[in-house]
Design a protein around this nucleic acid. Structure first.
Length: 660
RNA sequence: GCCGUUGUAGCUCAGGGGUAGAGCAACGCAUUCGUAAUGCGUGGGUCGAAGGUUCAAUUCCUUUCAACGGCACCA
């Protein structure tokens, strides 16, 4: 009898430490916290019920396991940010009546909220908005949760002129509850959960920037104004974050590229890079390293045409799908008449700069007859490609119009896919390690909506990539729908100084292009078979990679990549001829050394070469010249070591060896 | 491409309806110096471009280009 009663009225709550407690059905998270301790009740901001975040005020009606989320927890910080977005929205609507609200999620380091308003916001409005937000926080209105009837809710928001919210509700699945949160007078449709009151948001927040964003991420829809903010648990965290951003901006590769005289860009060649001697030195060293890696990896290097007839691109399928981003060149002799039209007649034939290398590599594969014995055939190219990227997409070295891929295509049999994928991942891992990147994310990007090829083929391809990752025990996330139109891909993603993510390495499985371009090999039984094609790049774009490396190392590249590895600087002109001899010795050993015999103080020279991030400075004065020594000063240290010149040169040669 | 911001000397930036200014850099001279800026001097800009308003525009207006911050895109 007692047992039966319990099952109706009581629930068992399991805490994270495994302890079980019994409460009356309908008990809320807050009540549970209060029953444990007063201080816990004070600190708690939400409750995780069976793994799902919920409001503390939500009655619990069944047996569950819970954990109480405090403001200090990682989940608590997410709530601070999300609630802060709501506070922002309330403040904006108070200050700018008629502004429509849309959505405001928390993101890494903060939150944003998208508004619709005829007048744009400007950063000058921030002070007023922040002040209003602080008032709302100070007021500390409780967040209360209500579940509304769908049609009531739509009517409510339509009446308020909140068309975007009404549209959101309309599009929510029928099964979804329509949850409305109130904070004082202000209401918003929201999935929740929220902290108990606006006061819990605290004041460690700051509005950062305004930006345009499309409604529902669709470029055909309305443009909204997005306000980004950052929010933290306390002022120290906020300050630390702001300092961190400031520091990161100092490593911006565009800034360092100019300061270190690596490259520049200009209007007349937007999206293309002018590599200066020092920048190009990095490139050449990196490319040479990659060549050694590829050669040992069984790749064969090739070079294919830059400009090819449009019918070639028609056959590959790019003409139809990507033409708007291709640079198309009329195949006509231009008019030479002064002041005349560029072309006398309407061009009939077109060529196009290659936007990628794959079809060209298929042409090489197709020359002659290939046997199963030739497979896998790995064709590699440092392929210079052109893509007419949208203006807004261009970004320093990271996104350019002319770029060089460390591209390769592996033609193999189906039963070789797994092994090739494994080899590729291993090679990529090794190269990233050599180049100083241990921190990257792997994404498995699966079939997009617009695609070619049967589902059976896609199943096979996606499984192939996943199996290889599993075999290697590499961690990965799945990004559904992000694959290429011809096949799924692995993307190796690296972050730049300020946390932006850039795709670098990629491995794409393709059963389609060999079919489309009619690539065949002769199998053991004499039959003609289609090879499978693996598109792969490790650095991705060499431009981008160098940009990321500059930021990662804050310009202080490892010795083997440093454009100038050593400067020999004199203290007085008495050491000039000795300094010249030291430079000759260094250069004879393959060290990139420069001579500085300018009539300047050694302080000045040290400062200048340090700012130029030269790894080694050999200082020579009268003493060193007489004793045939050099005073070595390494970048980042003010210690000096006086060493015999020949020993120093040999040591530096050793230290400057590339990792492979 | 879309929304917003910015554009003045090589760089960083100030100024403002009466045709521009600083620091650093460059150049010249002096200084020969021991580990993150020696001193003095000189030169340098059709104020992103085009058009308009005005007696007068770098400044105000329009258009345009580029860069920057996002969004969309990224074979």
């Amino acid at each position: 009898m007692a047992e039966a009663q319990r099952s109706v009225k009581d629930i068992t709550v399991t805490l994270p430490d495994g302890a079980k407690r019994t409460y009356a059905a309908g008990t809320t998270g807050m009540e549970i916290a209060e029953s444990i301790s007063k201080s816990l009740a004070k600190a708690v901001v939400a409750v995780k019920i069976d793994g799902a975040m919920s409001d503390l005020s939500l009655p619990i009606n069944k047996d569950v396991s819970i954990s109480l989320v405090k403001r200090e927890d990682a989940e608590g910080l997410e709530l601070i940010r999300h609630d802060c977005a709501h506070v922002l929205a309330e403040a904006v609507q108070k200050l700018y009546p008629g502004t429509q609200v849309t959505i405001g999620p928390n993101i890494e380091n903060g939150f944003f909220y998208d508004f619709f308003r005829n007048e744009p916001f400007s950063t000058e409005d921030f002070a007023a908005i922040e002040a209003e937000m602080k008032k709302i926080v100070e007021r500390g209105a409780p967040f209360t949760r209500e579940v509304w009837d769908r049609n009531e809710a739509i009517k409510f928001f339509k009446n308020k002129g909140e068309n975007f919210k009404a549209e959101l509700i309309q599009d929510l699945p029928e099964t979804e509850e329509i949850k409305i949160y109130r904070q004082g007078e202000w209401t918003d449709l929201c999935r929740g959960p929220h902290m108990p009151t606006t006061k819990h948001v605290g004041t460690a927040f700051k509005l950062m920037k305004v930006a345009g964003a499309y409604w529902r991420g669709d470029s055909n829809k309305a443009v909204l104004t997005r306000i980004y903010g950052t929010a933290w648990r306390n002022d120290k965290e906020l300050q630390d974050y702001l300092t961190q951003i400031e520091e990161a901006e100092k490593r911006d590769h565009r800034k360092l590229g100019r300061e270190l005289e690596l490259f520049h860009m200009q209007d007349e060649a937007q999206g293309s890079v002018f590599w200066h001697p020092k920048g190009w030195t990095i490139w050449v060293a990196l490319e040479a390293y990659m060549r050694r890696r590829l050669k040992d990896g069984g790749y064969l290097e090739v070079k294919t045409p830059q400009l090819m007839d449009s019918r070639f691109w028609e056959a590959s399928g790019h003409w139809g799908k990507y033409r708007e981003n291709m640079f198309v060149v009329p195949d006509v002799v231009p008019n030479t008449e002064e002041g005349g039209k560029v072309f006398k007649e309407e061009p009939k034939h077109f060529m196009a700069l290659k936007p990628m290398n794959c079809p060209a590599h298929v042409q090489i594969f197709k020359q002659g007859i290939k046997s199963y014995r030739d497979l896998p055939m790995r064709l590699a190219e440092f392929g210079c490609c052109h893509r007419n990227e949208a203006h807004g997409a261009l970004h320093g070295l990271m996104r350019v119009r002319q770029f060089t891929q460390d591209d390769a295509h592996i033609f193999c049999r189906e039963d070789q896919i797994m092994e090739e994928c494994v080899k590729f991942c291993e090679l990529t891992k090794a190269i990233y390690k050599d180049l100083g990147f241990d921190d990257y994310v792997i994404k498995l990007e699966t079939r997009p909506e617009n695609r070619i090829g049967s589902d059976a083929l896609w199943d096979k391809a996606e499984k192939g990539l996943e199996d290889a990752l599993k075999k290697l025990g590499m961690k990965y996330d799945i990004s559904p729908g992000d694959g290429a139109f011809y096949g799924p891909k692995l993307a190796f993603i690296i972050r730049d100084a300020i946390g932006r993510e850039w795709g670098c390495g990629t491995l794409q499985l393709d059963f389609n292009l060999p079919e489309r371009l009619d690539a065949l090999y002769t199998a053991e039984d004499g039959s003609r078979q289609r090879p499978v094609m693996l598109h792969r790049a490790i650095l991705g774009s060499i431009e981008r990679w160098i940009g990321i490396m500059i930021e990662n190392y804050a310009g202080k590249l490892p010795l083997w990549l440093a454009p100038v590895q050593c400067v020999v600087a004199t203290i007085t002109s008495e050491a000039d001829s000795y300094a010249e001899e030291v430079v000759r010795e260094l250069r004879a050993k393959g060290i990139r050394a420069e001579l500085d015999i300018r009539n300047e103080k050694i302080n000045y020279k040290v400062r200048e070469h340090s700012l130029q991030k030269v790894p080694y400075l050999f200082v020579v004065g009268k003493r060193e010249a007489e004793e045939r020594n050099v005073a070595i000063r390494q970048l980042g240290s003010d210690a000096q070591k006086v060493v015999n010149m020949e020993v120093a040169v040999d040591d530096l040669k050793q230290a400057a060896q590339p990792p492979y």
